[in-house]
């Protein structure tokens, strides 16, 4: 069963949210998801491009009130 972990990186400046995502992905199993919350506008483009380069999968991107929610599935170990 897919497990989802939420990481609240709101308030962290670039590249903080990305680094928190990378650290988080190391702690979960293949197939699990991380939902990262960020209010850094750069994360909207930075995280998807990193996910693609690193070989993981982008679940969803949501623009909420004053922050973004980005879901990433761990594909590679």
């Amino acid at each position: 069963m897919t497990k989802r972990t939420k990481i609240d990186a709101r308030g962290a400046h670039c590249p903080g949210p990305l680094m928190e995502l990378i650290a988080g992905l190391r702690l979960v199993e293949k197939g699990d998801e991380i939902e990262i919350l960020s209010n850094d506008k750069g994360s909207l483009k930075d995280i998807p491009i990193w996910v693609q380069k690193a070989g993981h999968a982008l679940g969803s991107i949501e623009e909420l009130q004053e922050y973004y929610s980005i879901v990433v599935e761990k594909v590679k170990t």
Partner: peptide
């Protein structure tokens, strides 16, 4: 540091 680190974590 940002350039080095982001490049390194991007394979």
């Amino acid at each position: 540091a940002m350039t080095a680190t982001i490049a390194a974590v991007s394979e």
